[in-house]
Amino acid sequence: MTSRTKAVAVAGVLLGLALIAPFTDAFVILLITRALILAILAMSLDILLGFTGLPSLGQAAYLGIGAYLTAILATKFNFGLGWSFWVVVVLGILLAAATAAFFGLFAVRASGVYFLMITLALGQCVWGLAYRWNSMTGGDNGINLPGRPAFGIQLSSDVAYFYVVFGFFALSLLMLYVLVKSPFGRSLEGIREREVRMRTLGYNTWLHKYLAFIIAGGFGGLAGVLWAHANGHVSPEDVVLTTSVDALLMVVLGGPGTLVGGAIGAAAVLFLREYLSTLVAWWQYVLGAVYILTILYLPDGLMGVATRLRRSSIALGRPEDAKHPVIS
């Protein structure tokens, strides 16, 4: 498939989703909305993990910053519930990006497993603040939002809110796509593959990674703002380590380095968890097994399966083309 037909396929799916979603069940549309928000978070992480090779274990921090900012502005300053919602979106992105810019000073020097550890520590700092800074964050109780914004359009309507989230998702996808196809994005991939070589070629690899870290933080913040209004509630649970791990799983399950994979992974994890936990009490086993099986057998995620299937059908009789290491 050429990148052109790929783009057409993605656009087709999105268009279909936009048309069908309002006619789904009143609950399913809530799930789709949440899946789209988590997809933004997963795509933001994919910029780091898939394109730059930096596995972050603290992406939930930026979701939390966007969400808490939205909730605090709404409850303490009554701000962001009208047209000012759009200002909050910008502020959420900026604050999360600024935090990432600060955290990045510590984190980006490290690589591999040290990067994992340091992002874990930074994420835990944000969680510690959310959990313990009672006067600002409500501590364990979290914060209830007074309601969704209204500016001519009532976002309290789930269909209206779906379209807002959908719009942000499509925009994020487009922007991130342009980003990864740009020379900057190509150099990120170069850094992922061979950092030393890129450095000897004269690239400032630190700056590239630092910028990628900030961009990822910004999109994480956007997801946070939308998340706060989707739930009507923010909680320290939004910032815990397992939320960050979930985001990683979404990317790895979908297929790192593909953007769309993160979105597919987000939807898969959300729907799987939602429906399984309704059906059976032992759903945690299934989820644990999904983690383990994905890691063992799907190194390139669901997107990798598609590629492999296609390759093996094209390359009938040419087994060396179809071969793909199951375990790398």
């Binding site: 993990l49 596995p55 274990l57 994992l116 791990v245 990683l248 799983l249 790895v252 644990g288 097994a289 999904v290 983690y291 383990i292 994905t294 890691i295 063992l296 190194p299």
Partner: peptide, 9 residues
């Protein structure tokens, strides 16, 4: 990364 996810699973 894969070790992390496997052990968390």
């Amino acid at each position: 990364l894969r070790q992390v996810l496997l052990t968390v699973g």
